[in-house]
C-alpha cells in the first residue's frame, strides 16, 4: 500500500505559482553584457536569472532571447540597467519598474509597463489593452498600435503610440501625457482628472468631461523632443485634449459637507 503524502501542494490550480525554483544560471556573460535563452525557462526562472545578473553580477546590459510571449517577464526591476527582450512577451511585461531601459523587439500583451515609476520601455510592434496602466513616470513608446484603455489611471510619464489607439484611451487618466500619432477610438479621455492627450489622426469620439484645448509652442517643443529621442516620424499636426474639470466636484453639498479651508 502506498503511503498518502502529507506534503502540501506547491502548485496552484492554474500552475502559475512556482515557489521552489532557483535561477538556472545559464547566461553567457561577456564583460558588461549577458545573454540568456528563455525558450525552455518559466517566467519565474527568467526573472530569477535576470535578477541574478542585474543585482548579483552587476551586469548593466542583459538580453533575453526567445521570450516566447511568456507573462510577467522583467517585472519589479528597481535599478538602472538596459534589458533587451528579443521577441514578444505576454501580459504584465516590464511592469513595476523604476529605472531600467527595456527594449522589446516584438509584441506585448495586456498591461505592459504597468505602474512604471521611471525609465524607458520601447516596444517595436503592437501592444494589447491597458498599456501603461497606472503608470507614474518615464517614457513608454509603442511603435505599432495599442488596444483599449491605454494609460488607464495614468499618474505621470509619457506614452507615445506610433499607430492607432483603441477605445477609452486615457480613461480616468490623472496626470502625464499621451502622444497618439494615428487615430484614437471612441470615448477618448473619459473621466480624466488631468494630463494631456495629443492625437495626430482622427478621434472617433470624446469621453465624458474630455475637451479640446489649444496647442501651445511648449506642447510642440515637447513632442518634437520626444520624437527626436526615439527616432520617430512626426505627424504634421496634433490636437490636444484635456480634462473639462466638470466632474471634479459634486454640484451640490449638504450643509455638513461644506468645504473647509485647509
Amino acid at each position: 500500500m502506498v503511503a498518502m503524502s502529507t506534503r502540501r501542494s506547491r502548485n496552484d490550480i492554474r500552475g502559475l505559482a512556482e515557489p521552489d525554483v532557483e535561477a538556472p544560471k545559464t547566461a553567457r556573460i561577456e564583460g558588461d553584457t549577458a545573454v540568456f535563452d528563455a525558450a525552455d525557462l518559466s517566467p519565474r526562472q527568467i526573472n530569477l536569472e535576470l535578477r541574478r545578473l542585474v543585482y548579483g553580477e552587476q551586469i548593466p546590459e542583459v538580453t533575453i532571447e526567445n521570450p516566447g510571449a511568456k507573462h510577467s517577464v522583467a517585472v519589479g526591476i528597481l535599478t538602472r540597467c538596459r534589458i533587451t527582450i528579443d521577441g514578444s512577451v505576454g501580459y504584465f511585461g516590464a511592469t513595476l519598474g523604476d529605472g531600467p531601459e527595456i527594449h522589446i523587439t516584438g509584441r506585448v500583451g495586456w498591461s505592459v509597463a504597468e505602474n512604471m515609476m521611471s525609465g524607458v520601455t520601447v516596444i517595436d510592434k503592437n501592444a494589447g489593452s491597458l498599456t501603461g496602466a497606472a503608470m507614474r513616470g518615464g517614457d513608454l513608446v509603442i511603435r505599432g498600435h495599442v488596444g483599449a484603455r491605454t494609460g488607464i489611471d495614468q499618474k505621470g510619464g509619457t506614452i507615445i503610440v506610433g499607430g492607432n489607439a483603441g477605445a477609452l484611451t486615457g480613461f480616468m487618466m490623472q496626470r502625464g501625457r499621451q502622444i497618439i500619432c494615428g487615430d484614437a477610438g471612441p470615448g477618448m479621455g473619459d473621466s480624466m482628472y488631468d494630463g494631456a492627450i495629443y492625437v495626430g489622426g482622427a478621434v472617433a469620439s470624446l469621453g465624458v468631461d474630455c475637451v479640446e484645448a489649444e496647442m501651445t509652442p511648449e506642447d510642440d517643443e515637447l513632442i518634437d523632443r520626444k520624437f527626436r529621442i526615439y527616432g520617430m516620424d512626426r505627424p504634421a499636426s496634433f490636437r490636444k485634449f484635456v480634462c473639462g474639470k466638470k466632474l471634479w466636484n459634486y454640484d451640490n453639498l449638504e450643509p455638513s459637507e461644506r468645504k473647509l479651508v485647509l
Partner: peptide, 12 residues
C-alpha cells in the same frame, strides 16, 4: 487576468 496579476506581484 487576476491569476496573472498575482503571478506578476509574486515575481516582483
Amino acid at each position: 487576468d487576476l491569476s496573472l496579476k498575482i503571478q506578476e506581484v509574486r515575481e516582483a
